[in-house]
Simulated assay, not measured.
Amino acid sequence: MHPHPAFRFTSRLSPAGGAKLLSLGALILLLAACASTPHRRQPTFRTSHSGLADLPPRAPSAASAGEANDILFRAIALVGTPYRWGGNTPAGGFDCSGLVDYIYRTAARIKLPRTSHDMAAMDGRNVRRMTQLASGDLVFFDINGAISHVGVYVGKGRFVHAPNSGGTVRLDDIDGPYWGDHFAYGKRVLD
């Protein structure tokens, strides 16, 4: 008895069949890599509602409201982009400072320093209280005694950032248990 022709396997592959099989194998490996556990994670604590969400939106100034809007749209559009240490493009992925520099450079034509530490040291008005943050402000976090993380405040208690290896660019509550505990200050770049 011979198997049904649809179930007959052959040991020879045509070049097109080999390419399809290789593509399928690469896709399976890629999906497996995406599903793997990240190497280094910062705690993720979600609050159901930021305590700052009920504050009215605040723009840095009337003169820079258009730039702030462009920065917000660019930042939100990059949510979901993969994290990559040293990355500074949507195609290659982002680390925190690469993301912030890309947003400002492409949305407002402002080139920022490469590291979060250097961004924190640049000129600009520091904003110490979360309630005084305006949309488009840089937000800095002190982790282990030094500024080592930066994001862009988008308003209503939320900020966009590239938080960790194995993760993606995301939107988080700035006053949540983890980020609220590590918030150092904001910096107004647009005024």
Rank of each mutant, 00 (worst) to 15 (best):
P5H: 15
A6C: 00
F7Q: 12
F7R: 15
S14A: 13
P15R: 12
A16W: 05
K20D: 06
L21R: 15
L24E: 11
G25P: 00
I28H: 01
L30K: 03
A33G: 09
C34A: 14
C34H: 07
T37N: 15
P38R: 10
P38K: 06
H39P: 05
P43Y: 03
P43T: 05
R46H: 11
S48Q: 10
H49G: 02
A53N: 06
D54S: 14
D54G: 12
L55H: 02
R58N: 07
A59L: 13
S61G: 03
S64P: 03
E67I: 04
A68G: 10
A68T: 05
R74V: 07
A77H: 11
T81A: 13
Y83D: 06
G86Y: 01
N88P: 01
T89L: 07
A91H: 09
F94R: 01
S97F: 04
G98N: 09
G98A: 08
Y102R: 03
I103L: 00
T106G: 04
T106D: 09
T106W: 04
A107H: 02
R109T: 08
R109M: 07
P113K: 06
T115G: 01
H117E: 14
D118R: 13
M119Y: 08
A120E: 12
A120V: 04
D123N: 10
R125Y: 02
N126Q: 09
V127G: 06
V127T: 07
M130A: 00
Q132A: 11
Q132I: 03
Q132W: 07
L133M: 00
L133P: 05
L133K: 05
A134P: 10
S135T: 14
D137F: 04
D137N: 10
F140Y: 03
I143V: 15
N144M: 08
G145Y: 09
I147H: 05
S148V: 04
V150T: 09
G151F: 04
G151C: 01
V152A: 05
Y153Q: 00
G157I: 07
R158M: 14
R158K: 14
F159E: 00
H161Y: 08
H161E: 10
P163E: 10
P163V: 09
S165R: 11
G166W: 05
G167V: 02
G167S: 15
R170N: 12
L171N: 06
L171P: 02
I174C: 09
I174E: 01
D175W: 03
D175V: 00
G176R: 07
P177T: 08
W179P: 10
G180N: 01
G180C: 08
D181Q: 12
D181H: 11
G186H: 07
R188L: 03
V189A: 05
V189F: 08
D191Y: 05
D191L: 06
